[in-house]
Design a binder for these strands. Structure first.
Lengths: 317, 317
DNA sequence: ACCGTGGCAGAAATCGATTTCTCAGTCAAC
DNA sequence: GTTGACTGAGAAATCGATTTCTGCCACGGT
């Protein structure tokens, strides 16, 4: 692995000159040619580690998401990647698995790696960002906000989505619409359920909402289990609003061919899966979230130091 | 961001001593306590960049996969991650999108980042690994082999899988079994098709195999299109072997409710999707591939310098 | 009592690139 | 002709941690 010193020696110049040539700083053309030739011959690749140590900055951003197996988040990640790669940044993808300790471990890594920035879909409402913020590393919260910090944030209007989906089921003629949402600690899960609760209170005024609200884990197995528990109720609902795509898949599996129960799922089903007949699927702007978050981060990296912004995307694109 | 010098100053010792304490090298207890206290108070986190530069090694491995949206590869990635995290390594996930230029870009990054090792599912048969190999960075090929290099490799017996799946369709009574496989440049696609070809030649002796073999892109849309083109043939097949999971989903979508056509898919369907009635799905040991590849890499990182190994996993776990 | 040994901590070199500082040489103006 | 501004390239400092080299001190043996 050639170093800048070897290139310098071969070109008969000082390392400083090599550095200047490679960084586009004015140097007489004769020298520049010699340097470039030497670099070429030695197959020189700058050592990023040394570069980063000296420059005290890196060209890598961390993207921390709670579930790498959920296409919603991989689509979001794609959005981030596309923008970041265009800007010459690399993205390292970190999977927190909805676990706070894994999340803080990755944040710790981002810190000690001196990464240029972080885009975070927090696993908990109150992630510990003190250290990162103290370094003034720019952080953007995406999909879920990070309470306790004044961060750039990109989210959707989850309450409205919950209302819309629930409203649609009532409009189809169902009389009791239940709700399967995510972990009670996750903001999107709370908000989507809140949307449902508003409509439920209005449309099923006698009923007890808590009996028809199930918190689960945002994954396929959780959706399946939640649907099973709802059907086991003494007075089962005749429709259900499912607050994310994977639980939607699970719920539809649990319903199998029983099409007496109406279902509305928030978030595109993976891989263009066909929903069961009669089910409705409300798309979410996953990729758009990623793109927008990356844009905000890039602005910060370019020196923007205005106040934190909060962008709420239309949840029904 | 505190440095080791500040910790040293606060503890009233030299930076060398701080380093020794933090790395578990014998130091008198009195000093050790002072250092640990100072580090605690200053919230000291070692600068990985400096560490890496000095140690000339990193604790990060790159995992390069061709499609982050394919659950087969995310499962594989999970396997790698689990093993790597246990061993104290971080994994950065790189998505080559089946494109050679993106792949070599990420390999370039791995190189200049001096990553500890690379696990690669090559997008092309002949990836350019000269530079990486020259650095003697350990590389493990997974799922697909890297021709032209003598690398540790973990693959499955794709030819056998192709045979098994095709055989099963003929055993079910179908008379002409077509094959939808991946890009002609991808080894697994070639091998799975080869398995099909062997059985096809034997069971449909008169027919022209090339008419019933479609190369597509290993994604849902490709499976859909391929199936449509097969059905448009003058003498359409009455069954089809689909060589990966996502194309299987697409093919089943294209068939919709037409259950005259038999189908066998290689690789678990995403998210526990139910195959259409009568379809068979042959699972693949995706996670196991990742785990095994990580194990091989870890052995190399621990100094194993034996000859390259080639591990062929049972494709039907 | 003196010399050799070993342990422990500090000083300094090191990793590889960037950047500031320094200095030699050029050219123009007075 | 001399001075001063300017250009361009090399020397050296720097980033923050690790590690080798040094040297001090205490202890033990003769």
């Amino acid at each position: 692995m050639a170093t800048i010193y070897e290139v310098a020696a071969r070109a008969g110049v000082s390392p400083a000159t090599v550095s200047r040539v490679l960084n586009g700083i004015a140097v007489s053309p004769a020298y520049a040619d010699r340097v470039l030739a030497a670099a070429e011959e030695l197959n020189y690749v700058p050592n990023r580690t040394a570069q980063r140590l000296r420059r005290r900055s890196s060209e890598v951003i961390a993207l921390v998401i709670p579930d790498i197996e959920n296409p919603f988040f991989t689509a979001l990640a794609r959005g981030v990647e596309d923008r970041a790669l265009d800007a010459g940044l690399s993205v390292v993808l970190c999977n927190s698995d909805e676990q706070e300790d894994k999340e803080s471990r990755y944040l710790q890594v981002a810190l000690s790696e001196h990464m240029a920035g972080v885009i975070l879909a927090p696993a908990s409402d109150h992630p510990d960002l003190d250290a990162i913020v103290a370094m003034s590393t720019p952080v953007v919260a995406v999909d879920r906000s990070a309470h306790g910090y004044d961060l750039d944030t990109v989210v959707m209007d989850d309450v409205a989505s919950g209302r819309t989906a629930t409203e649609r089921l009532y409009a189809e003629g169902h009389s009791v619409v239940a709700c399967i949402t995510g972990p009670a600690t996750v903001e999107t899960a709370q908000n989507r359920a809140e949307g449902w609760r508003q409509v439920f209170a209005q449309r099923s005024p006698g009923a007890e909402p808590d009996a028809y609200l199930v918190h689960s884990n945002y994954r396929v197995d959780g959706g399946q289990a939640a649907m099973a528990s709802l059907r086991a109720l003494p007075e089962p609902p005749d429709a259900v609003f499912v607050a994310n795509n994977l639980m939607g898949v699970g719920a539809m599996q649990a319903l199998a061919t029983d099409d007496a129960v109406g279902i509305a799922v928030l978030g595109d089903l993976p891989f263009g899966m066909f929903p069961r007949p009669g089910a409705s699927v409300l798309p979410l702007p996953a990729r758009e979230l990623g793109v927008t978050a990356a844009d905000l981060l890039l602005q910060r990296l370019n020196g923007d130091i205005g106040p934190a912004r909060r962008i709420v995307l239309d949840s029904a694109p």
